[in-house]
Simulated assay, not measured.
Amino acid sequence: MKIEIVFGKVLKSLRAEHGVSQEELAYRANLDRTYISMLERGIHQPTLGSLVAVSDALNIRPSELLKIFEAELEKINNSE
């Protein structure tokens, strides 16, 4: 599975856990809602700046977001 898809899945899950819409997350992160949508659908990879912005908007450390991403990626790779 492509890493963009895995990141998107993780981002969507975290956003849902925080009870935040794409629009609200985009506003908090100072990003466009369509960009958040494209990240969640695996169309784009996040830049370092957008990764930090999204993490801040979700009140988590960027390293924590990456740990969750790595764990999900490992789980998927082990199941293939």
Rank of each mutant, 00 (worst) to 15 (best):
Q22R: 09
S55N: 09
R61L: 12
R33D: 11
T47S: 15
P62V: 06
L39P: 01
L66H: 07
E70M: 07
Y27K: 14
P46F: 03
I68E: 03
K67E: 13
H44S: 10
N59H: 15
S37T: 14
L65T: 12
K67D: 14
L66W: 03
E40N: 05
P62Y: 05
D32F: 14
S63N: 10
I68L: 02
A53K: 00
L14M: 15
S63W: 01
L48A: 15
E24C: 10
E70D: 12
I43Y: 00
S21P: 06
G49T: 06
Y27N: 11
M38T: 13
P46N: 05
R61F: 13
P62E: 02
E72Q: 05
E23L: 05
T47G: 14
Y27T: 10
R33A: 14
F69M: 01
N59V: 12
L58N: 05
A53V: 03
S37D: 10
V54P: 02
E72I: 02
V20T: 10
E72C: 03
E64V: 14
S63K: 09
E24Q: 11
R33P: 15
E64P: 03
D32V: 11
V54Q: 06
L48T: 13
A16L: 15
L39D: 04
L48G: 14
N30P: 12
A71I: 04
A16V: 12
Y27M: 10
R41D: 07
Q22E: 09
Q45E: 15
V20P: 09
R41I: 07
N59L: 11
G42K: 07
I68S: 03
G19Y: 01
E40L: 00
L65M: 04
E72R: 00
H18F: 03
G19S: 00
